[in-house]
Design a protein around this nucleic acid. Structure first.
Lengths: 147, 147
DNA sequence: CGCGTATGCTTCATATATGAATTTTATATG
DNA sequence: CATATAAAATTCATATATGAAGCATACGCG
């Protein structure tokens, strides 16, 4: 007697289609990141925005942020609202374009981002650990093919 | 002297940390599924709920649904509200437990689920295509390890 | 120069998800 | 049996995300 039944009921759907495994893996990692960032006072979305700003080294238009984060602008508007409420980002007028708003990281924002980066690196190490002797390069290529 | 700078900024998007590749791949597939299901009149969340109900072959308590879908119950409450508004699911009282509500798929819900399953299968074939000669079993094992 | 179109941001409605608080009902235990 | 505790569902506040609609500004072209 096979144990497909056991596997199915034990884990939900062990025999799931491959694509759902990708989705579940992505979500599982997201969850770990959220859990790691929570104590620092960041969410994954906030950390992502701060990181783009820090890496840019200068204030960015909200449209540029949206492009970097691959999302619509109304999402950035709200995200910046929350980051500004947290005191991690400041909205500045763009001297070159009166329509545009630039997001500038505050000192506190930069510190928070650095703290978040440490946590993210920790999670990354855990992942590497789980992958064991798997060829990371190959996996990454595969994933980027999908994206 | 460390080379954190190089690692962080050298390759821009391409050199992203492995974990973000998993997250992005998962989201990319999710997006494809949403796009495929949209024309059928379903979202991925709705399709998932309907599929669990259809596969169960009988009405399920909302708590059971939450467990199968790995989410909190308040999420299911809202999802069922929308599915019920769409006429795809019906809430029934549980004769054995007056606290419980059971979700039953309607005939229309079953048809919609079947239509959705066809689209999902199409996306799955596309994914298999993209993966080419990669060892699917190995990939799936890897992904389930992460989950 | 002025007008039409494009761009930048915000606002609103909606979907998905979480978690805390609440209500109702079940169950266990003293 | 009464009461304490647990479990089921909902409600509310909030975060994240999308897309449509709207307003202000920029820009190209006749």
């Amino acid at each position: 007697m096979k144990h497909t039944r056991i596997q199915q009921s034990a884990q939900g759907e062990a025999g799931r289609q491959l694509m759902f495994c990708f989705v579940m893996a992505g979500r599982a990692i997201e969850q770990r990141l959220e859990d790691a960032l929570g104590p620092v006072g960041l969410s994954l979305a906030k950390f992502g925005a701060l990181t783009h700003l820090v890496e840019a080294g200068e204030p960015l238009n909200l449209s540029e942020c949206a492009k970097k984060m691959a999302c619509v602008r109304s999402n950035i508007t709200q995200l910046m609202d929350r980051l500004e409420a947290d005191g991690l980002v400041r909205r500045e007028e763009d001297p070159d374009d009166r329509r545009a708003i630039r997001a500038a990281v505050t000192a506190q924002g930069a510190r928070r981002q650095a703290a978040g980066a440490k946590e993210v690196a920790r999670v990354q190490r855990q992942l590497i650990d789980v992958l064991g002797d798997t060829d990371h390069e190959a996996v990454q290529r595969l994933l980027l093919t999908i994206v």
